[in-house]
Amino acid sequence: MVRWSTLVESASFDQLGTLDASDISDHANLLAERRLRPRDLYRRWEEQQWSADAVRLDRDRDTFQTRLPRTLRRQLEATISTFIVGEYTGLDLLAPVQLGAPDEEDLIFLGTQVADEARHARLMFRVGHEVLGYDPDPTIMLRQAWELAEQEHRDLALLEGEIMRASVANPRDYEKWLRCVTLFHLVTEGVLAVSGQRSIVRALGKTDLLPGIRSAFAAMCRDESRHISFGLHALRTGIREGHAEAIYDVLERAMPLALVLTDRLQPTSAFLAADSHEARAATQTGVDSFLRGMRWIGADPAFTRHVVDRARVVAPERIEGRHVREHTGRVAAPIERNPS
């Protein structure tokens, strides 16, 4: 059996495109379980570089326009459009997280994340123009992609602006920084982004369709694994130091929106009970990512159930209590906490 680190950690960009979707999907979880510190994540960044401009998209363009079934083409366009907006937004909004970094190791790692977000944004602009046929002007392209955004994305964008502005106004406020990290690293990256990336990698599988996009999204998954691990480290520290309420407040407002969005990416599995534990592990739903993240940061299981129950209010037909019970050991049941 090949060690997981040799499958994903040490793979070249071209090799990433040939790996099984399950190996790529498992990577963020396996990295998070190691509970690495920012300095260790920095070292991985040094070893895992790739170029957005070097990704070949000529075959992808021809395939997307002429060979893909209409339904798959529409699904891919909708998902990719969220990344056009999301990766640019991530680059644009990461400055407050850097500004409030509590120590030097955090700041140095966050510098690598800025570089990653710039690379991802550049790649998405290329995919938008060269494959989807969007306008090459990034400003116009962002408007085109935003037109496909769902209401939950718009609600999250408003919350992002609110939380980031508060941190910029008080960069030395540790709790405001933790709120930024909660939204950016646990909600946006740890659930939304990684779920979308996994859905594309799984959809394309090992076929020769869209090889550039598949390899690029696999590489983005690996980058996100480092970002997510940093966020889990920061939030675990924050909870241990007594700042859980600041973290919970953001999760209570943002996570139900994110879970509904990831459910639409994986309509057969996200809130529905799959036939087996193995099936759920293979699909790596947004709910899975959220529940694992909450365990890794040491969150209160009762609060975790409460957040999933709030998502049930938004999508009552899609959330199944048995799915939550297997992660928390108890049946999901509503609890009263700052009801809105």
Results as ranks from 00 to 15, higher is better:
Thr112Asn: 08
Thr112Asp: 04
Thr112Gly: 07
Gln113Leu: 10
Gln113Met: 11
Val114Gln: 06
Ala115Lys: 06
Asp116Val: 06
Asp116Pro: 01
Ala118Val: 04
Arg119Phe: 01
His120Tyr: 03
His120Met: 13
Ala121Thr: 09
Arg122His: 11
Leu123Glu: 02
Met124Lys: 01
Met124Phe: 06
Phe125Lys: 04
Phe125Leu: 10
Arg126Leu: 07
Arg126Gly: 06
Arg126Ala: 05
Val127Cys: 05
Glu130Asp: 12
Val131Lys: 01
Asp135Glu: 11
Asp135Gly: 09
Asp135Leu: 10
Asp135His: 12
Asp137Cys: 10
Ile140Arg: 15
Ile140Gly: 03
Ile140His: 12
Met141Asn: 04
Met141Ala: 13
Arg143Thr: 01
Gln144Asp: 08
Gln144Tyr: 02
Gln144Ala: 09
Glu147Gln: 14
Glu147Pro: 00
Leu148Trp: 07
Gln151Trp: 12
Gln151Tyr: 11
Gln151Ser: 11
Gln151Cys: 02
Glu152Cys: 00
His153Cys: 08
Arg154Val: 12
Asp155Tyr: 05
Leu156Tyr: 00
Ala157Leu: 12
Leu159Tyr: 03
Leu159His: 11
Leu159Pro: 03
Glu160Leu: 14
Gly161Gln: 15
Gly161Leu: 13
Gly161Ile: 07
Gly161Asp: 14
Glu162Val: 05
Ile163Asn: 01
Ile163Pro: 00
Met164Val: 05
Arg165Thr: 10
Arg165His: 14
Arg165Lys: 13
Ala166Trp: 00
Val168Trp: 08
Ala169Trp: 12
Asn170Gln: 15
Pro171Glu: 08
Arg172Val: 05
Asp173Lys: 02
Asp173Phe: 01
Glu175Lys: 07
Glu175His: 09
